[in-house]
């Protein structure tokens, strides 16, 4: 039997499960396990981690036997743009306030779409800023600072 990877999606998912499971067991080793009668904080996580690692290993092994369709191609542009927009919002909200954070974040999010248009993005961002300040700050009175 050759160990060629035929099911790449299953292989990658299996590796992920294996890594997370093994990692969880590694970290939870320091927690008290206890006994079945008095389960410590480590009992449940270690059991889950072990099971997850086993499922991950099984999925990795299965990947060399079964042929499935390939995993989807990563669309890097939306991942980066959406990720950046969210992180910018998170970084800004406590420091520069709601209005600049929403505006900048919406501008970056527009970059995720194909063929972004700067003028259009600016207009959308401006509308969203006014709308969110109106709804969340003035309407629902959530504790944000505007600037």
């Amino acid at each position: 039997m050759s160990l060629r990877i035929r099911d790449r999606a299953g292989f990658a998912a299996g590796l992920l499960f294996l890594a997370v499971g093994a990692g969880a067991v590694g970290i939870a080793r320091d927690y008290q396990i206890g006994s079945a009668l008095h389960m410590g904080p480590g009992y449940f996580p270690i059991a889950l981690g072990l099971l997850l690692a086993i499922v991950g290993a099984a999925s990795v092994l299965r990947a060399s036997v079964v042929t499935e369709d390939r995993p989807g191609r990563i669309a890097l542009r939306p991942v980066l743009a959406i990720g950046a927009a969210v992180v910018v919002f998170a970084a800004g909200i406590d420091r520069i306030g709601l209005i600049p954070s929403v505006f900048v974040s919406a501008l970056i999010a527009s970059k995720a779409t194909p063929r972004p248009n700067v003028a259009e993005a600016g207009l959308i961002a401006a509308c969203l800023t006014i709308l969110s300040a109106g709804i969340f700050y003035y309407g629902l009175k959530l504790p944000f600072s505007l600037f």
């Binding site: 959406i82 990720g83 927009a85 969210v86 992180v87 919002f89 998170a90 970084a91 909200i93 406590d94 709601l98 929403v102 974040s105 919406a106 501008l107 999010a109 527009s110 995720a112 779409t113 993005a121 959308i124 961002a125 969203l128 969110s132 969340f136 959530l142 504790p143």
Partner: peptide
């Protein structure tokens, strides 16, 4: 896209007023 993103960010932030939650959601 920008609308969903902004409303989601504000929503997640407002649960605990924690910017950390927003990063975690990302």
């Amino acid at each position: 896209v920008p609308a969903i993103l902004v409303f989601c960010c504000i929503g997640v932030y407002s649960v605990n007023n924690a910017a950390f939650d927003v990063v975690l959601a990302a």
